[in-house]
């Protein structure tokens, strides 16, 4: 209700690891800050019938050290240590990262890769938005004003699923210049259903359906399929150039990281 009635610019603050720098440098001057840190119900990781449920205010460091995540979401467990640095992970939250929707951040890409469902609460009650529809652009999500992200539901992760996660950043903990999250449900040696999600290369994390189709029904070490998949990455992505990397370099990186992620999934790394 506070958000609905707020005059001027109201901002929700979760861990504050993205918002605080903007406040400190006066790049954001909200008239109202709504702090979610004291709402205990928004924090924690639990089992559900369908999989896992993570509260939006769960700290990244708690996800990193969670036995449940390690057991039931190995891709996320593997990728979380890549997020920033420990003191940032100690304070930063998954919900804050997803709401901020930085296109180079790991959590948005991971949610897209594992088919997460975002649970949003607003004045009209709760609604569920799949990750594929949640990220709508640079720092933009499907969240309406007066809504907040309260939980994330992660579907069951099959035991036979193999995964690879690769990112390239200038230094440890930096935002990725490019990254790939990959998993494949194996039918013997053959790649069945799979996911290829690229991040750092567009205004939001992107699922590369065309690349998935190429990889499917081949072994993960199929060299011809990999060449085609690399070309497809090059064709499908239209990243922007910025200070840290040109568009061309980002494309080259994404293709290379795809290969490494697939090979890691296939135990070839």
């Amino acid at each position: 209700m506070i958000l609905q009635n707020a005059q001027g610019d109201a901002r929700i603050i979760a861990g504050g690891q993205s918002l605080m720098p903007m406040l400190n440098f006066r790049l954001a001057t909200p008239t109202l800050l709504v702090d979610l840190n004291r709402i205990a119900a928004l924090s924690g990781i639990g089992m559900t019938d369908e999989g896992l449920r993570i509260g939006a205010m769960t700290r990244t460091r708690d996800i990193e050290t969670s036995a449940l995540i390690a057991q039931h979401q190995p891709l996320i467990a593997h990728a979380v240590p890549h997020i920033a640095h420990l003191p940032i992970r100690s304070r930063g939250t998954i919900g804050g990262s997803l709401s901020h929707a930085d296109p180079a951040a790991e959590f948005p890409a991971l949610m897209l890769a594992v088919d997460a469902q975002m649970v949003l609460h607003g004045p009209q009650g709760a609604r569920v938005v799949p990750a594929g529809e949640y990220f709508q652009g640079l720092f933009e999500t499907a969240t309406k004003s007066a809504e907040i992200l309260t939980h994330i539901d992660l579907p069951h992760w099959p035991e036979a699923r193999r995964f690879g996660f690769q990112e390239y950043s200038r230094r440890r903990g930096d935002f990725a210049l490019a990254g790939i999250a990959f998993w494949a449900d194996m039918d013997g040696d053959i790649c069945g259903e799979c996911r290829v999600v690229a991040f750092g290369v567009s205004d939001r994390p992107v699922r590369l359906h065309g690349v998935e189709q190429i990889l499917q029904s081949h072994p993960l070490n199929d060299a011809d399929a990999m060449l085609q998949a690399r070309d497809a990455v090059d064709d499908l992505l239209e990243p922007d150039s910025d200070l840290q990397a040109s568009a061309e370099y980002r494309r080259m990186l994404a293709a290379e990281l795809l290969q490494r992620a697939v090979h890691a999934a296939g135990g070839m790394a």
Binding site: M20, P21, D35, P87, I88, R91
Partner: peptide
């Protein structure tokens, strides 16, 4: 500016005092 908040190192510059 690292301080311990409930035993964990966090940035005091990225934490509101009220939090």
């Amino acid at each position: 500016c690292n301080v311990l908040l409930n035993g964990r190192a966090v940035r005091a510059c990225l934490t509101l005092a009220v939090q």
